Simulated assay, not measured.
Amino acid sequence: MVRFDPWNPDFVAYPYRVYDELRRDAPVSYFQPTNQWLISRHADVNTLLRDRRLGRSYLHVATHEEFGKQPEPDFQEPFWRVIRAGMLDVEPPVHTRLRRLVSKAFTPRMVESLRPRVRAIAEGLVDTYVEKGGGDLIAEVAEPLPVTVIAEMLGIPDGDRHLLRPWSADICGMYELNPSLEAQHTAVRAAADFAGYLKALARERRQRPGDDLISALAGIEELTEDELVGTCVLLLNAGHEATVNVTGNGWWSLFRNPGELARLRADRSLLPTAVEELMRWDTPLQMFERWVLEDIEVHGVTIPRGSEVALLFGSANRDPAVFEEPDRLDVGRADNPHISFGAGIHFCLGAPLARIELMESFGALLDRAAKLELRQEPVWKPGFIIRGLHALDLTAE
């Protein structure tokens, strides 16, 4: 067994050499520390994401006990009440109903109509960033852009928006492998606080509706209060965690590949393919998990009902069976079936909005910052599943 170690900072900083060995020697392998089956090849990951014998949850077909699992401790109840009321962690028919209701806000026309506002926000953030000579690109550009966009969509008042990013970061801590007890309690508190805030805001909007998503959701009778809260929390978390990390990881990738950065600066028409390539080359969501609802077989290995599979997106996106010269960053890569947004019924609903945010963010920096230079090499956060940098400190002019 090669050294897959998601708690090792060196592995988190560069997992791709290990992925190469997994794909070649052990495309299906059992990882005892997390009791998961690692799936590393693109074809297998792509197939299993679409296989209805697997699910994000098993609670629609079995109890914890029937699946041989221990129920979560009582203190986690506020967290799971929020998370399991959103569409990401449920399966049909509940998932189908929730996605149908929320997708009305994410039609191609609705999302495209947001582009001028996204551009204005991005340009304003970049102008401020350049005027002060740079700083932490993640804190000053990458984070505020998607948070502002989703906050405006939801209708979160300006004075409350500073609460959103800390809540999201704390909640997402529960998604890491074997989170510490402290991280669990932190996630529970954040979920409870965010839920309380959203419930109060939704009640207010039912009385005085506005032109925002919370008002629209609050007016849907078939949506329960918990489902409204779960949906809004999911939209915040999914709506900006990945975008923030694609921005930070992406610029760090370009600095490590100066020829590709120069190529992008010289030919702005490459921006659409560059955004897709940056999502592939240093994937922000390295792993996505599924429960096995019926026995499956992958490469002759039987994975029994009740098991959990860990689908390695970062490995799939570097698979040489799919990508020519997968370890080479190519901002003009045309054939790029990366799976950074997932696949199947849980394919990221916000993918079109994320692409617009990334295009406008990278475009504004390329247009308005003639020179960007790294002040110091960045450090990776300890998280493996949601993988990003602590900061990206740059000079800008």
Rank of each mutant, 00 (worst) to 15 (best):
V2P: 15
V2N: 04
V2D: 05
P6H: 13
F11H: 15
F11W: 14
A13K: 09
P15W: 05
R17W: 04
D20S: 11
R23D: 10
D25G: 13
A26P: 01
P33I: 07
N35S: 12
N35C: 06
R41G: 15
H42C: 07
R52Y: 05
R52Q: 15
L54G: 10
L54I: 05
G55K: 14
S57R: 08
S57M: 03
H60V: 00
A62I: 14
H64R: 13
E65I: 07
G68H: 13
P73G: 04
F79C: 03
F79Y: 13
W80Y: 15
I83C: 11
R84A: 01
G86W: 12
L88P: 02
P92F: 04
T107E: 04
P108E: 00
M110C: 05
V111L: 12
V111A: 12
E112G: 02
R115N: 11
R115L: 06
I121K: 06
I121P: 01
A122G: 05
E123V: 12
D127W: 05
G133A: 03
V141R: 00
P146M: 02
I150S: 07
E152R: 06
E152N: 07
I156L: 11
R161A: 03
L164I: 15
W167C: 04
E176L: 10
V188H: 09
R189A: 14
R189H: 09
A190I: 08
A191L: 01
D193F: 07
G196Y: 00
L198S: 03
K199C: 07
L201P: 14
R203V: 04
R203I: 00
R208Y: 09
P209G: 00
P209D: 01
G210V: 05
D211I: 00
I214G: 03
S215Y: 08
L223S: 10
L228C: 06
G230S: 05
C232G: 05
N237I: 10
A238V: 01
A238C: 01
V244D: 02
V244L: 08
G250R: 13
W251R: 10
L254C: 08
R256F: 08
N257C: 05
N257Q: 12
E260R: 06
L261V: 13
L261G: 13
R265L: 02
R268N: 01
R268Q: 00
S269T: 14
A274S: 12
V275C: 04
M279R: 09
F288P: 00
L293Q: 00
E294K: 13
I303N: 06
A310F: 04
D319E: 05
D319M: 03
F323Y: 10
N336Y: 02
P337M: 06
S340Q: 08
I345W: 05
H346D: 13
F347V: 04
L349Y: 08
G350I: 05
A354M: 10
E357N: 02
L358D: 03
L358P: 00
F362K: 03
L366C: 11
K371R: 15
L372A: 12
Q376M: 01
V379H: 08
P382E: 06
F384L: 09
F384A: 08
I386H: 07
G388H: 04
